[in-house]
């Protein structure tokens, strides 16, 4: 039987496991872009399974066929199940028609991470970007998904924005 998904583990257990994932992948690469690509790859595997699981459990086996439908599925349902809360915001890009952004003030995977100066723009959110990409791709909305830090005025830590750029405009609805 399908689990109800209410089971929990300690946050530190997850944080340490995630840190092992990052450290292991660090040994496999020689640049930041490659490291992000590998984290995204790991996230993608999670995302494609999350889609299967949640469509089955939360949506009575129905899938979203509309662009806004799937985006709000990611922003609310997926986020709520994985991170225990709805994402802080979902916005449409102002410059490009096919761009959307999901923002989170304190993304779970970035909560315990500080990026060393020599690692430039590296963002562990690449893992979450991979999850989002995994969900979207498998739902039939191929997209390029990237994670970025965006400084907030008056705050020490930047928020994380997951930028979603859909592959072609026909997939929109």
């Amino acid at each position: 039987p399908l689990s109800k998904g209410k089971q929990e583990v300690s946050l530190s257990a997850f944080a340490f496991l995630f840190s092992e994932l990052v450290q292991y992948n660090q040994t496999q690469v020689d640049n930041i872009a490659e490291l992000e690509r590998r984290l995204e790859d790991a996230g993608y595997a999670v995302g494609s399974r999350v889609l299967e699981l949640l469509c089955n459990r939360e949506k009575g086996n129905r899938r979203e066929t509309r662009l806004l439908g799937i985006l709000s599925f990611v922003h609310s349902t997926v986020w709520k199940v994985l991170f225990g809360k709805v994402a802080d915001s979902l916005e449409k890009g102002t410059e490009h028609e096919d761009e959307y952004m999901i923002s989170e003030k304190e993304l779970l995977v970035n909560r315990f991470i500080s990026i060393p100066k020599d690692m430039g723009t590296f963002n562990c959110g690449a893992f979450v970007a991979g999850i989002v990409k995994g969900v979207l791709d498998n739902a039939g909305f191929p997209a390029v998904v990237t994670a970025h830090f965006v400084p907030i005025e008056g705050q020490q830590r930047p928020r994380t924005t997951i930028l979603i750029k859909f592959a072609d405009e026909e997939s929109g609805g």
């Binding site: 998904g5 946050l11 496991l17 994932l21 991170f83």
Partner: peptide, 24 residues
């Protein structure tokens, strides 16, 4: 103890672990 510590969904943990095994 468990009720007093920060927790995350077990599925996130399991799936992340599965992704690690697959990468390895």
């Amino acid at each position: 103890i468990f009720s007093s510590i920060d927790r995350v969904n077990a599925e996130l943990f399991t799936l992340t672990y599965g992704a690690i095994v697959r990468q390895l």
